[in-house]
Amino acid sequence: MYSPEITQASNFVKGVDQAFLVILGISFLFLIGLTVVMIWFLYRYNRKRNPVATQIHGSTSLEIIWTVVPFLLTMVMFYYGWAGWKPMTKAPKDAMEITVYGRMWNFNYEYANGRRTDTLYLPKDQAVKLNLKAMDVLHSFYIPAFRVKQDMVPGKKDNFMWFEPQRVGNYEIFCTEYCGLSHSYMYSTAKVMEAAEFEKWMTDTTQLAAEVAAMEAPGAAGKKIMQNIGCFACHTVDGTKLVGPSFKGIWGHEVSVITDGQKRTITVDEDYIKKSIYDPNADLVDGFMKGLMVSYQGQLKDEDIAEIIEYLKTVK
């Protein structure tokens, strides 16, 4: 959020806000000045007060003044805009790298140690480089409080943004490139922690163990994986139909699918679930749009899918 109390949420805030201040300041000055002059002229030179107009053809010196002065002012604005933006284009070498996956309609994050989350955990005062990977269509990664935004372009190399979080807190992340049905629900949170706390979160195996312990219930691990990778943006577990079919009660049941244009009936088993994750359009559930889901090959390992299957068995 753009509000004064969190102005220093990242290292870019100062440069960007300074550019805002300069441009908006000059703009308001012109807007108010010219509007007042115009209204004054409309009043003062109304034909009631000024029955005969004085014919003036123009003034070369005035034309020169109001060409040169705005030119200089726009160059000042251009400079501040450039100066605030330039540092965004090059990430420092020692920046911590996190991969961001964007797909219809969620973001998730992969850390160097393989940890995957649906919330962007960040250490304070540490440069972070986000490698942006769009899995299907264009998305745009936008953290308003940090004043950063970068489109995520499928297939583009060297698609990144960087910043240094400077204030502990939770900040909204929006997708700002229109990406279809649930574009307005494609958001996530950046959670900035003290460096030490972050370190603990990253490496603390006991915390991991605690998380695992919380997952003692059958299928809990699978559910966590699915949350992190964003399955529930399109699939429900309560029978409601979204963009994709609901998971409710699918295990072991028969579904009608379209394979190569032919309708056939199959039973949902391990092979079918695995195939639906790696090659979602091969056996498409009847009544759903082709091409909306992309393959998770390389995103999920076979062990992950085994956990997901355990979870789906519990969704009755």
Binding site: V16, L31, M77, G81, M88
Partner: peptide, 21 residues
């Protein structure tokens, strides 16, 4: 004038990054 002056915010790089889209 309001339309044009707000265009300056969008024409400058740093501010456009924040308000684009």
């Amino acid at each position: 004038m309001i339309g044009g002056l707000s265009g300056l915010v969008l024409g400058a790089l740093a501010t456009d990054v924040h308000v684009h889209d």
